[in-house]
Design a binder for these strands. Structure first.
Lengths: 229, 229
DNA sequence: CGGCTTATTGACATACGTCAACTATTGTGG
DNA sequence: CCACAATAGTTGACGTATGTCAATAAGCCG
């Protein structure tokens, strides 16, 4: 069930670090791991929560849909991250759906175990408060983005956020297909293409997933980027 | 310092209910209350956190500014609510500023007292996890709004959210000047005016702060509104 | 009752979405 | 390994929602 590699990854997760061995054991008592292909759905908006999910590997997107069809991406979670704890904490139905973007291994913790551990173990409660606090900031940043920046500025900020700096430039490897990035940034794939075209003039080059940023400085001032984590 | 009316309000706040008398006493040890006029600033984006703020009365807006000037409103807090706990929990600078919208009385809790109580009192940690979980959902809903709905739909959803239902209709009393509502909904005051004009055809009437909604049903379907709390 | 702020309306600009055609990339089976 | 289909991304033409700027009207307060 829990492979060795999974154990390793679990040990490195922020949750495990924060709450330690004994509390983790409680959470794992009835937990299981599933290997899921890209496209698999973990849960749907409106459903009752049955498991708390922890991403062991791969990537999982949170999707929101309006009554019409086109889903948008709220956030993408990677290795070590916990999915949609709020619904689990509040015993409320999911506000969003979750879809595997890159084939993933996911830990399923029964929500009753999570809730009872949350009652009993103060470290878990503190860890959740901290995790949610971090997430609050991620979401607020996204709202600021959507309200205050143009699509090209959002793209620039996104590239800066995932870039590996070196010297005055940086290189970026896009972690998702462009279509997903477009949704995450609140635009259509077409607009994303055009945003990339606009950024060419600001020193963004390369094709496929690998890109080079010629001048981080220039991008930063274009995006009105504030590095605050 | 703490007036009787303040005590009353404090007792009714979700925080007090959740953590009880003794933990609350710890938080209050060095706390003070300030009466603030509309327009007063509680803190600025980028500043270090020195106090945790609890709104006793009045309304306080969270503002975000880009490098250019025009601020946008992330959220408005009313009586009994806690302001920007994430920065306090994480010991990170504020991501947003706070401005009093309607003259307010605000409790200032020194952040050291908050942090030490958070360490020691599991009930506070759990209360914070729950509070942040609720807030997470508020923010996600706003992101869904911004990405998936038109300005008129956002306004319709907003009106439904604050409406007092009666029969098939409802009445609404706008809690903020229209300029603030516009910013909260991610549009200009001009666009808000036009959104109201569009909703007239859907049975939204009245002027000034008091409005009537003729058919909640009609608005709901127009806004593609999902009531999920 | 002025005078100041706040909201509305109109004319216009623009960013972004939509639709469609085209191109590139990826995967698959012969 | 190539050929081809399927999918993903780009580009162009065009429409529309929303922003901008300016003028007017409406509320609000001393």
């Amino acid at each position: 069930m829990l492979r060795l590699a999974d154990e390793e990854r679990l040990k490195r997760s922020p949750l495990h670090r924060a709450i330690g061995e004994p509390a983790m054991a409680l959470l794992l008592a009835n937990a299981s791991v599933q290997a899921l292909p890209a496209g698999a759905r973990l849960f749907e908006q409106g459903e009752e929560v049955r498991f708390l999910h922890l991403v062991l590997s791969g990537r999982v997107s949170l999707l929101a849909k309006a009554l019409g069809e086109p889903d948008t991406v709220i956030e993408v979670f990677a290795e070590g991250e916990l999915l949609v704890a709020p619904a689990a904490i509040l015993s409320l139905p999911y506000l969003v759906s979750a879809e595997v973007t890159t084939a993933a291994r996911v830990l399923f913790i029964p929500v009753e175990d999570f809730r009872s551990t949350l009652e009993r173990d103060p470290a878990l409660a503190r860890a959740m408060a901290e995790l949610l606090a971090r997430h609050w900031r991620v979401l607020v940043r996204q709202i600021k983005d959507l309200k205050l920046r143009s699509s090209a500025q959002r793209l620039a900020a996104y590239l800066l956020a995932i870039a590996e700096l070196r010297g005055g430039g940086a290189s970026v490897s896009l972690p998702e297909p462009r279509r997903v990035i477009a949704a995450r940034l609140g635009m259509t794939p077409e607009s994303l293409s055009r945003a990339f075209a606009r950024l060419k003039r600001l020193g963004v080059s390369g094709k496929g997933r690998r890109l080079q940023l010629e001048s981080v400085e220039q991008l930063r001032s274009f995006s009105a980027y504030d590095d605050q984590r």
